[in-house]
Design a protein around this nucleic acid. Structure first.
Lengths: 334, 334
DNA sequence: CATCCTTCTGAAAAGGTTTTCAACTTCACA
DNA sequence: TGTGAAGTTGAAAACCTTTTCAGAAGGATG
């Protein structure tokens, strides 16, 4: 049986209040007793029970994270940032994968509520009205990560996806490309899908290349294979000299397809990705891409949530972090 | 203020015992009251407080996972298996990254103890005596994942690393290669380092190729770049026709190095990896590798831990799951 | 010497649930 | 009509802490 505060009290021959004080405000107890208590704690190997503590203090020191899928290395980086920041601020993370399943999400939310989690980090899912209602009902501190909501007043941390996509495509155009295609996520995905498409179109329009905006193939699930999409794209528009892939994983599938079909990169076709995942440095050729500050976003979101939990005033509701085009070898000037 | 069981009781005009029974053993309460209570729960949006529940039941429905780094896609797959199995069995996961730092590990262990976690999943770290003492002191249910201990009687789930490495190298040899090299993890890593090295050596010895076992370069940190190691290796032994990389990430770095230096794969040099990570299907050329059943290992380890927690007899202390050589395009017969 | 402050301490309440126990109803059966 | 069993119910204890409150002890001040 685990030792409790009572056992310590008995061994040190003091009341449990005193033991509690030794742990939480040592300066208020006289030295003789304090050392007696400390020694008792030591010999028993006593550690306070967080459940009891949380019951009374209404704090659990735990944050709940909701992500689509941890296997996606984008989220892995994000979470690592969250974890490091959490450790610093004294939180633990409970991580739940939803596979973008609505029911799973709602079920996890309720689970968080029951567990008396201190706050929620909700990633990537667009905030649909029914989510919002559920969130509102639960009244728990919340930060949206790599997603945001323009309809509702919810705090968020992300990059500007539209601008980032615009910058990627502008980079292709300024490298002399005119026949440009895109592999993107479904437009119903208002974060990674629609916005990046909008950035793509805005860049084209600005350079009077709008005719080209039909050269696009959509993916409906992030785990889907970039190779197939690539095949469809080049069937649709064989004359392409450059492709913007809405994620590095897609870009890697695309690279694979092009290699299989003897189309050299970047000589014949240039490729630009999105996310800057770990392995994009090691593709052949090394992938040019637009980098999201994933780790940093994780850190910031936890700090933001912490501010909300502790009732500090949070200066900015919706935070946008800077992205960056990382130039490597997969785009050629022509 | 969140509604409590008292509020429900008052609204339904019954005692709190009855409310509790409605939730935990509905058949023992008469129908009229039961519906009254259910309705009250509904209108108040009541959800039981897990802290209070856990305090009395001595169960939190939470498992603690200790991993080196979630960004390593190997662990991400593992965790996904754990998560799915946990969901099924009614657990949540608290995930902690140690970066293989001893102090962090110990600190997390104590944190788990305080949080009254139901059990621990400890991955990859070899079990050093001081860990063992700590674990023993805490007396918490534990399963080792993708690591094991031969000194101590601890339950574990992993593959047979030595045999898997042996199979990888045998595959190279049976493909006609004699000049074989290896990029491996430091031998002080008794799981991914030493064992895979031993498998490498056993295969060489069996085919009388032992002279070649000096062709090896060690990596001291998984995040280290495979490219540098590749460079050292080919400086050491330029005549190599095949390389066994102890992880797919290393293999990808190696591929990148070879491409940079105009050494064609698999025509001039063959490469075999280890782990079968997601992206190994998309490298150029597609990577031949030995697959670990990562997801399955995650699932099995949670099931095993669950058995231990519920006091069921667990049939096998140390479980070894089957691996498999996945043949793709990076190894050429000669 | 009386009074007032400080400093230190323990008893008890509170936090929200589950579970035990005793008591009360109801019903079947003799 | 009486007896016992079965079915329901609520009061109270238990789980382990933190915190409030009042009291005791000691010192300083008038």
């Amino acid at each position: 049986m685990k030792p409790t505060i009572k056992d310590v009290a008995k061994l040190a021959n003091v009341s449990i209040s005193t033991v509690s004080r030794v742990m939480n405000a040592p300066e208020t107890v006289v030295e003789t007793k304090r050392t007696r208590v400390t020694e008792a704690i030591e010999t028993l190997g006593y550690r306070p029970n967080s459940l009891a503590r949380g019951l009374i203090s209404r704090k659990t020191g735990t944050l709940g994270v909701i992500i689509p899928d941890i296997r996606n290395s984008y989220y892995a980086d994000l979470i690592r940032g969250m974890e490091d920041a959490s450790k610093k601020l004294g939180y633990n993370l409970i991580i739940c994968n939803t596979d973008s399943d609505k029911n799973r999400l709602i079920s996890y939310l309720n689970n968080f509520y029951e567990k008396q989690i201190d706050g929620i980090l909700l990633t990537s899912e667009p905030v649909y009205p029914d989510y919002y209602n559920e969130l509102k009902r639960l009244k728990m501190p919340l930060v949206l990560v790599s997603t945001h909501s323009l309809e509702y007043e919810l705090p968020s941390v992300k990059i500007n996806d539209e601008q980032a996509a615009y910058d990627a495509v502008s980079y292709l155009i300024s490298s002399g490309h005119k026949e440009i295609g895109m592999i993107g996520f479904d437009l119903s995905d208002s974060i990674a899908g629609l916005t990046r498409y909008q950035g793509f179109v805005r860049a084209l329009r600005e350079y009077n290349l709008e005719a080209v905006k039909k050269n696009i193939v959509y993916i409906h699930d992030w785990a889907e294979n970039g190779e197939e999409a690539a095949q469809k794209l080049f069937q649709l528009a064989p004359e392409l000299t450059a492709v913007f892939a809405a994620s590095d994983e897609l870009a890697i599938g695309l690279l694979s397809y092009l290699h299989e079909n003897g189309i050299s990169v970047p000589e014949r076709v240039s490729v630009i990705g999105f996310d800057n995942i770990r392995l994009s440095r090691f593709t052949i050729p090394k992938l040019t891409t637009v980098a999201q500050p994933k780790y940093e976003m994780g850190v910031r979101s936890v700090e933001k949530l912490h501010r909300i939990i502790s009732g500090e005033k949070d200066p900015i509701l919706r935070e946008y972090l800077p992205h960056e085009v990382v130039v490597r070898d997969s785009v050629k000037r022509r």
